[in-house]
Simulated scan of single mutants.
Amino acid sequence: MISAGHETTATVFTRGLYMLLTHPGQLALLRAEPERLDAAVEEILRYVPPGSGGTPRIATAEIELGGIRVKPHEGVIAPFGAANHDPARFADPDTFDIARVDPPSHIAFGHGPHHCLGVHLARLELRVAFEAVLRRLPDLDLAVPAEELAWSEGLRVLKLQALPVRW
């Protein structure tokens, strides 16, 4: 559980910090109302989930997905992060909003038998890390323009190669 959750939690923390630093209004709201920290963690998990891929599935019957006909025995990969941006489920889903009133029903940790075993540990780690950074580094800011940041894209995790900051 420790090795499986390390990269994903560290990546969500980095991407979440990036989201806060590139959305100064959201960061200011969180600093002004630290009681929103749990909601902020849930919004970060919804907006930038731990994994970027999806679990491969084999269709057992013919089905249409997003206007594409999938035949029995064909493989599909549905990125679960896409479900977290579903306008049928989330109001204004492509907006990062820590004051979101939607209940935290994202599937950042999967669902059903594939639900992450480390969900409670991950949430706790993220809460503690964000709380410490926000409290100890009140002037934290990006040290380079966001456009200069480099991203690594793999099958499972989208992450920043580095997040240079200053305080």
Rank of each mutant, 00 (worst) to 15 (best):
M1K: 00
A4R: 13
A4H: 11
G5T: 04
H6F: 09
H6G: 00
T8W: 00
T8C: 07
T11S: 14
T11H: 08
T11R: 08
T11N: 15
V12R: 12
F13Q: 05
L17H: 09
Y18R: 09
L21R: 10
L21T: 00
T22G: 06
T22H: 09
T22E: 08
Q26K: 03
Q26I: 01
L27D: 02
L30V: 05
L30S: 09
L30K: 04
E33K: 05
P34T: 03
R36D: 07
L37E: 12
A39F: 01
A40D: 00
V41G: 12
E43V: 01
I44L: 10
I44N: 01
L45M: 04
L45K: 02
L45D: 01
V48E: 06
S52N: 15
S52I: 14
G53K: 05
G53V: 04
T55Y: 10
P56D: 04
P56M: 10
A59G: 04
T60D: 13
A61V: 15
I63W: 10
I63L: 15
E64N: 10
L65I: 15
G66M: 09
I68P: 13
I68H: 15
R69V: 03
R69C: 00
V70P: 00
V70A: 02
K71Q: 14
G75I: 03
G75P: 09
I77R: 01
A78N: 07
A83V: 11
N84M: 04
P87H: 14
P87W: 14
R89C: 07
D94E: 13
D94I: 08
F96E: 04
I98E: 09
I98A: 08
R100C: 05
D102R: 11
P104W: 01
H106N: 11
H106W: 11
I107L: 12
A108F: 05
F109Y: 15
F109L: 12
F109S: 12
G112W: 01
G118H: 03
G118V: 00
V119C: 01
V119A: 14
V119S: 14
H120Y: 07
L121Y: 09
L121I: 02
A122L: 01
L124V: 06
L126V: 09
V128N: 03
A129E: 07
E131K: 13
A132E: 14
V133L: 13
R135H: 11
R135D: 13
R136W: 05
P138Q: 01
L140K: 14
D141K: 10
A143H: 06
A143C: 12
V144D: 04
V144S: 06
P145Q: 15
P145D: 15
A146L: 12
A146Y: 05
A150S: 14
E153M: 01
E153G: 03
G154Y: 03
G154M: 09
R156W: 13
L158E: 08
L160H: 08
Q161R: 15
A162W: 11
W167F: 15
W167P: 02
